[in-house]
Design a protein around this nucleic acid. Structure first.
Lengths: 197, 197
DNA sequence: AAACCCATGTAATAGGTTACATGATTTG
DNA sequence: CAAATCATGTAACCTATTACATGGGTTT
């Protein structure tokens, strides 16, 4: 089942019913929920049409000066379908981590590249963590009725990212250890041909 | 870029070049790398054709008694493209966690369902963790030259799953706290209409 | 003989991204 | 005025899943 409609309904309906444009929805996804969700424009605009057509949201062109903009508001029907979706058991997305896959297939000759990949991931994770922490602080200062729910999701981001960061460093250490062990004992083939000491 | 070809090449090439059938590849994916990867048959068989056609793998029908079976072995060309892929910077898969999305959109009326979703996730994570731990023990007893790489990926699974499990319990506690706070103070609207004490 | 697993495969479809087109408006 | 940003949209493509079809072998 398609999830995009529900992200849109959720953003239009929670915390309080607030009309937004497609552009604003996209921006909200890329900022406030970016640490666990993503959508492309090629998905958002067609779905906005769809939801409009079936009466889950209601479009109203903003007139007057300034840029043209189509604001969408959630309807009673949309609220109902959002509530129904909230009750449905969430799908477990298929997991696919290309970095881990590469590590799984790793061998000594790949170590330099693997180290590079791990360092890239570390940089990215640090950025995500920083963003989550900033968000957390912001929410904690100006609390609303929905803060608790937002904080739960931020804590997921924070602790998962911290753990991942620790794992990256640990793996980096393991890899350089393997590499330096190899330098001392250049070829396993050579070594196994020597008598055990 | 399509990742399936490289999973297949990886499984045929590492740890040692070992010919396998499509069925065996599928099973390997569903067991040994299931905690960070997945593939469907509708993907595996066509890609096997593709790789055969471009000379990255080589098919050999197993003859004789027993079930019919097509064994594929990696070629020099396949090895080369696997090595090239290993060096390429891994993509950061777009993250989409439906449970977290639902929590983000949560409100008091959704709490019972959210608790249920969290408990389901806990059960699943526990199963994954158990499988990872069993795998880890197995690898640690019978070490090979590739154990280190496999252990790195297992540690990712283990620590991430443990963290997630902790987060689930924490969130469950937060939610029941909100619910019981509400029972004592049924309507926020009513309360805010009372004078501050 | 029935049921189940091994084994290979395909067609339909979903779901989504990329990349571009278009144009208005604000800002430096 | 140029560049950036706001704003909406679409067409082409890719990847992958689902669900089924087929048939032989093995177990109970």
């Amino acid at each position: 089942m398609q999830k995009t409609p529900f992200v849109i309904l959720g953003l239009l309906g929670r915390p309080r019913r607030q009309a937004r444009s497609g552009y604003e929805i996209k921006k909200a996804i890329d900022t406030v929920i970016s640490h666990f969700w993503s959508e492309s424009n090629g998905q958002i605009y067609p779905v906005l049409r769809q939801l409009s057509a079936d009466g889950s949201i209601h479009a109203k062109a903003k007139k007057g000066k300034g840029r043209r903009k189509i604001l969408y508001a959630i309807t009673a029907k949309g609220e109902a379908s959002l509530r129904a979706w909230m009750k449905a058991s969430p799908e477990t997305g298929r997991l696919r981590d290309e970095l881990i896959l590469k590590l799984f297939f790793g061998s000594e000759r790949d170590i330099p590249a693997l180290i590079c990949h791990l360092e890239e991931r570390r940089a990215r994770e640090k950025a995500v963590l920083g963003q989550c922490l900033r968000w957390q602080k912001e929410i904690e200062t100006q609390r609303t009725s929905h803060s608790a729910y937002h904080l739960i999701t931020l804590r997921a981001g924070i602790s998962l990212t911290e753990t991942s960061l620790r794992w990256v460093d640990e793996s980096l250490a393991t890899l350089s250890q393997i590499r330096s062990a190899k330098r001392r004992r250049p070829s396993p083939a050579l070594r196994s041909s020597l008598p055990n000491s």
